[in-house]
Design a protein around this nucleic acid. Structure first.
Length: 567
RNA sequence: GAUCCCGUAGCUCAGCUGGCAGAGCAUCUGACUUUUAAUCAGAGGGUCCCAGGUUCGAAUCCUGGCGGGAUCACCA
């Protein structure tokens, strides 16, 4: 514990000795900082010579102390509430005997949460402030807050360490107002989407996150286990198959905004859990859906920015309708000079190799086309663009194109070089769907861990008949990155996934019930203790090898793997 | 998974070719009743990420590890 933390605990004890509860129950807030600054009127509210205003502006506020300037028998400090900061002026002689010298000066710190009653005035230096007549501690902070100072727009001692900010987002939010603004804007964006869809009569629904069969996308899932039923469950990788069941059920427009989980790497565009909007509308096709997406995202941009233009990374991107609609193969031909439509797998592989891409045996034709698109086309598409008509191999849930053999009626919206939306005319022929699933099963047997599972119940639902349907998925986090001008997905997710802190692993969950991975002089190993009988592995040179073995052992024992913070 | 960069006080950071661990803010003591990065005088505070090596001597050099960031790969 640092000196400052020890001191704050002592202060708390001294407060308790004086009969002050460091954690009282409530405070009656009548005004917030931003609103006080806005409403203050010098004519009516500023006290005159006699110290009395025409109309005294009395307030009761609450917030966190962010700075403290003691000048003998009077002090100034800034308090921050949800709306911003306001200065408070406090004088010894306005408060009960001893309070100012013994409590305010000695026992209250930056970071403490306080309530203040008083009247609003403007100081000689011109800052609208609250003249405190009563001050009460509402919560004692035991850890010191990083002190960030700002003068004329220049910020001093700014906390720039990303790890600190992500691991202690609560501190980040206190000291970085622009971070609060990002998440407010994200919330406004989601509200705007919801209102847009509600206004059209679509039903917001919730479908299972825990699924016995996962599907709706190509991705590796997270596994979990249900004890009572003794069964493996998967965290959903997409909502799609359940939402389409609801279209079978007779709802004509359903949507869901929720988390999907994909057991894959992290990057500035990928977090293992992320937010997706999915929408399904009966009797519509992908052309109709393109119109809707344009209208919806233009509306979001205008609502958040007042105009369809959005600035991202110093570049202006317009969401104004209409957006270009570019067939996938045309886009590839435009950028590579090669017409790949209708080409065989081997011809595609040869083309890709002459373009400098590495192709291996396991890659099918759809995969090769996707590689070429990702390398040569996607990064070039900056303004929102519909890329349409994908190869059927890449799209096991999309309906075959009405006129172009080998393709499906599918579009992606690419914006700022990255996929933002994915949509299709939904496949509703149950036999074709079964054939597509079976093809996926073959890929799976061939080692493709991302191939889809056969979902028999979904096929049964289609056999009852699903109307023609248009479906859409929107990556909400990526849309939020665009709408808030953030470079990394971690900056639009409040608590992005990080490796656990070493101390957390050691203090938190380490029990003998689990398989422990450790490191000693001989290398990495694992051990497991049950009924005082220890099982210990031989040593591995690499942590990952020991970890993989430990996982196997843990799975067979039905326990967790714990990485010990030792050696 | 690969490559590069980073890890020093509560925060931001300096510390060169190896030689007593530093600054500003924060904290503590004192002064100061309209200050605002308040000011002035003083004080305390360190697992220099961890382990090993080289060396008379390591925050500094070397190796390995841990954590983070960036780029790439993977991933629609």
């Amino acid at each position: 514990m640092s000196e400052q933390e020890r001191r704050r605990r002592e202060e708390r004890a001294l407060l308790e000795e004086r009969g002050v509860n460091p954690y009282p129950y409530q405070w009656n807030v009548t005004a917030r900082a931003a609103e006080i600054l806005e409403r203050f009127d010098d004519e009516r509210h500023q006290p005159g010579e006699d110290g009395v205003a025409k109309e005294p502006f009395r307030v009761s506020i609450a917030g966190r102390i962010l700075s403290k300037r003691v000048m003998g028998k009077a002090s100034f400090f800034h308090v921050q509430d949800a709306t911003g900061q306001i200065q408070v002026y406090i004088r010894r002689d306005d408060l009960p005997e001893g309070f100012y010298n013994q409590v305010f000066k000695k026992l209250l710190d930056i970071g403490d949460i306080v309530g203040i009653e008083g009247f609003v005035f403007r100081t000689r230096m011109g800052e609208v402030s609250v003249h405190a007549e009563r001050l009460e501690l509402l919560a004692k902070a035991l850890r010191p807050l990083p002190v960030v100072k700002e003068v004329e727009g220049k910020v001093y001692n700014e906390v720039t360490d990303k790890e600190f900010r992500y691991r202690r987002r609560y501190v980040d939010l206190i000291i970085n107002p622009e971070v609060r603004e990002v998440f407010r804007r994200r919330a406004r964006m989601i509200t705007t989407l919801r209102r847009f869809l509600d206004a059209r009569g679509y039903l917001e629904v919730e479908t299972p996150v825990l699924q016995p069969v996962y599907g709706g996308a190509s991705a590796r899932p997270f596994l979990t286990h249900h004890n009572a039923l003794d069964m493996t469950l998967y965290l959903r990788i997409a909502d799609e198959l359940y939402l389409k069941r609801l279209i079978v059920g007779g709802f004509e427009g359903v949507y869901e905004i929720g988390k999907d989980f994909r057991n894959e790497g992290l990057s500035r565009f990928h977090n293992p859990e992320f937010t997706m909007l999915e929408l399904y509308v009966a009797y519509k096709d992908y052309f109709w859906m393109m119109d809707l997406v344009e209208e919806m995202l233009e509306h979001v941009a205008v609502t958040l920015h007042g105009a369809p233009e959005v600035t991202v990374g110093g570049r202006t991107i317009s969401f104004a309708r209409p957006w270009p609609r570019l067939p996938l193969f045309e886009a590839i031909e435009r950028e590579t000079g090669r017409d790949l439509y209708g080409k065989s797998r081997d011809e595609l592989a040869a083309a890709a190799e002459t373009l400098g891409l590495e192709i291996d045996e396991t890659m099918g034709s759809g995969k090769i086309i996707d590689e070429i698109f990702g390398a040569f086309v996607e990064p070039k598409l900056i303004r929102p663009t519909f890329v349409i008509d994908y190869p059927v191999e890449l799209s096991p849930l999309a309906k075959r194109h009405r006129s172009k053999p080998g393709l499906v009626e599918r579009f992606e919206v690419i914006c700022n070089g990255k996929e933002l939306c994915n949509a299709f005319s939904e496949l509703n022929d149950p036999d074709d769907q079964r054939a597509r699933f079976e093809e996926q099963a073959r890929l799976r047997a061939g080692g493709d861990e991302e191939a889809m599972q056969i979902d028999e119940d979904f096929l049964r639902a289609l056999e009852y008949g699903m109307p023609p349907t248009a479906g859409l998925g929107v990556g909400i986090d990526r849309l939020a990155m665009l709408m808030t001008d953030q470079y990394s997905i971690r900056d639009v997710i409040l608590f992005p996934l990080l490796r656990p802190e070493a101390s957390a692993a050691a203090e938190g969950q380490a029990t003998d019930e689990n398989v422990h991975v450790f490191r000693d002089a001989e290398g990495w190993g694992w051990r497991f203790v049950r009924d005082d009988v220890a099982t210990e592995s031989s040593r591995f040179a690499k942590r990952d090898e020991a970890l993989a073995e430990a996982r196997r052992a843990a799975q067979s024992e039905g326990v967790e793997v714990v990485i010990d913070d030792e050696a």
